[in-house]
Simulated assay, not measured.
Amino acid sequence: MAEDPGRAFVTGEASEVPELSRSSESANTDISIEYEQADSVFIFQTKVNISGLTEDGRIHFGTALQKLADELVREVIIIEGDSRPHDVSKPEVTASAVSQAFKALSERRRTPNQSQNQRSRIELSIQLIGMATLLFAGVMGSYLEEKWQVSLFSILAVLALICNGYTIWRRI
């Protein structure tokens, strides 16, 4: 039976959002995160400092914050469940579990920038070239009767070694 991951609720009063002037003053908004599960309720208070935060902006910010809190709660429960001994029935969420969950969530949410995408495409191309040259070198190994066949086999084998060596080097 799967455990109930619980749900985080973001609350706050509209009166907590100060009216902003056209100056560059920052808005200090109190937002509460209330976490409910079958046997526990936690309220976390946080202060947000955003310049120009409107009522609609506060609502959308609170919704986004709630989604992030829900994701973190689910990740904490997964990590806690994986590390809990089988003879212990009650969950024990430690600081370490929360830290591991936050790191895992951050890694998952991180999107590669354009240069990383370009680099991975180049690496994929090199891997495909290495695979194709290994295939052709294997086929050519059966036909080493003339000098040009031996030369082509040697070129393909060296190219395959270079491509695979580069791929291994990039992963280390």
Results as ranks from 00 to 15, higher is better:
residue 89 S to M: 09
residue 108 R to A: 11
residue 151 S to H: 10
residue 131 M to P: 02
residue 78 I to P: 02
residue 142 S to M: 07
residue 122 I to D: 07
residue 79 I to H: 05
residue 84 R to F: 00
residue 74 R to Q: 11
residue 75 E to L: 06
residue 122 I to K: 10
residue 79 I to R: 08
residue 158 V to I: 15
residue 73 V to N: 08
residue 160 A to T: 04
residue 140 M to L: 04
residue 94 T to D: 07
residue 118 Q to W: 08
residue 130 G to M: 08
residue 155 I to E: 05
residue 159 L to F: 10
residue 97 A to N: 13
residue 84 R to G: 01
residue 85 P to F: 02
residue 156 L to V: 05
residue 84 R to H: 02
residue 123 E to R: 14
residue 148 W to Q: 15
residue 79 I to E: 04
residue 86 H to D: 03
residue 86 H to M: 00
residue 77 I to S: 09
residue 143 Y to D: 02
residue 78 I to C: 05
residue 113 N to R: 03
residue 79 I to F: 07
residue 78 I to D: 04
residue 153 F to W: 13
residue 90 K to I: 03
residue 109 R to P: 07
residue 147 K to I: 10
residue 150 V to T: 05
residue 77 I to T: 11
residue 135 L to H: 13
residue 136 F to S: 01
residue 115 S to T: 09
residue 152 L to R: 07
residue 111 T to Y: 11
residue 112 P to K: 12
residue 125 S to G: 11
residue 129 I to Q: 02
residue 118 Q to R: 08
residue 91 P to A: 11
residue 98 V to I: 15
residue 143 Y to E: 03
residue 71 E to R: 09
residue 124 L to V: 08
residue 122 I to N: 06
residue 90 K to D: 03
residue 105 L to P: 01
residue 93 V to F: 14
residue 156 L to K: 09
residue 160 A to C: 13
residue 154 S to T: 03
residue 100 Q to L: 15
residue 98 V to L: 14
residue 106 S to K: 12
residue 74 R to S: 09
residue 101 A to E: 00
residue 153 F to V: 06
residue 71 E to T: 02
residue 148 W to M: 14
residue 111 T to M: 15
residue 108 R to N: 12
residue 92 E to Q: 14
residue 86 H to R: 05
residue 145 E to N: 05
residue 71 E to K: 14
residue 146 E to L: 13
residue 112 P to H: 06
residue 73 V to P: 02
residue 76 V to S: 03
residue 105 L to E: 02
residue 155 I to F: 14
residue 152 L to M: 06
residue 133 T to G: 04
residue 110 R to F: 13
residue 91 P to I: 15
residue 144 L to Y: 11
residue 125 S to Y: 10
residue 77 I to G: 06
residue 84 R to E: 00
residue 134 L to Y: 08
residue 113 N to K: 07
residue 151 S to C: 11
residue 128 L to P: 01
